[in-house]
């Protein structure tokens, strides 16, 4: 089974987006918060809750992305 980046504790996410920034750098070699396999979105207006939208059609098991999260939201499994 290939390993994947799993957003296991998104209730702790503060929405900083550093995971998106790093994902773009690692996969595209560019500075961007979009255009990679990972996007952070607000769950809904009025609430400080976020979700990770991940395209699992490509490699996602980057330990650097797991480790950059200041709130430890990700696992690789």
């Amino acid at each position: 089974m290939p390993k994947i980046l799993k957003p296991a504790r998104m209730e702790k996410c503060t929405g900083c987006g550093l995971c998106e920034l790093l994902a773009s750098r690692l996969t595209k070699g560019k500075l961007s918060y979009s255009g990679s396999f990972l996007q952070i979105r607000k769950v809904s207006s009025g609430k400080p809750h976020f979700k990770a939208v991940i395209d699992y059609g490509q490699k996602t098991d980057y330990p650097e992305i797991r480790d950059i999260c200041p709130e430890n939201c990700y696992d690789i499994e």
């Binding site: 503060t14 929405g15 900083c16 987006g17 550093l18 920034l21 918060y33 009025g46 609430k47 400080p48 950059i68 200041p70 709130e71």
Partner: peptide, 21 residues
């Protein structure tokens, strides 16, 4: 807590009132 875009600190604090944050 929430963060500004691109900041790992996350110093913005929100209280949960009766109706909203």
């Amino acid at each position: 807590r929430i963060s500004c875009g691109g900041c790992p600190v996350g110093c913005i604090h929100l209280l949960k009132g009766d109706q909203r944050f």
